[in-house]
């Protein structure tokens, strides 16, 4: 696998998204980011791993090593995969306590992604945040 999440430095993602001056630029940046998300296998896309409440299908998997949390995620919608790249870059490798202290909504808003937070009916990023905090 050539693309891996590790190659996209969080700072880089942050800079890329913060540089967007319009909805269109954010759209294009998310499309670009989406290509860096390693896709989940069919076996990993279980009902259990599915995030309820998203109109696009979203799966989220967490593995904990020595208290540090590592995430994998996928979606059938491309922009959502871009959002997931941004979101996971914020929480990757942190402890549960650290994650729970973060204001992920505010951090996503800083990345120009607040319009993805408004309506849980259409994209369910809030449902994903919820799962990240409770998984």
């Amino acid at each position: 696998m050539t693309d891996s999440l590790g190659q996209q430095k969080p700072v880089n993602i942050k800079a890329q998204l913060q540089a967007c001056r319009s909805k269109e630029e954010t759209f294009k940046a998310l499309v670009t980011l989406s290509k860096t998300l390693p896709r989940l296998s069919v076996e990993e896309k279980t009902e259990d791993n599915k995030v309820k409440g998203c109109e696009s299908a979203v799966w989220l998997i967490m593995e904990e090593n020595d208290g540090l949390r590592h995430f994998k995620a996928d979606s059938d919608a491309k922009l959502m995969r871009g959002v997931l790249v941004a979101l996971l870059s914020l929480v990757e490798g942190k402890t549960l306590a650290d994650i729970q202290q973060m204001d992920l909504k505010a951090e996503l808003a800083e990345l120009n992604l607040s319009s993805y937070l408004t309506s849980s009916r259409t994209n369910g990023v809030l449902a994903i945040l919820n799962k990240i905090n409770t998984i």
């Binding site: 909805k23 269109e24 696009s56 919608a77 922009l79 994209n123």
Partner: peptide
């Protein structure tokens, strides 16, 4: 192509439709 992706681009261009 996911309809939500199409919708997001249309929205970014000021075009309001319904995806769902």
């Amino acid at each position: 192509i996911h309809i939500l992706d199409l919708n997001a681009y249309l929205d970014s261009q000021g075009v309001a439709v319904r995806a769902g």
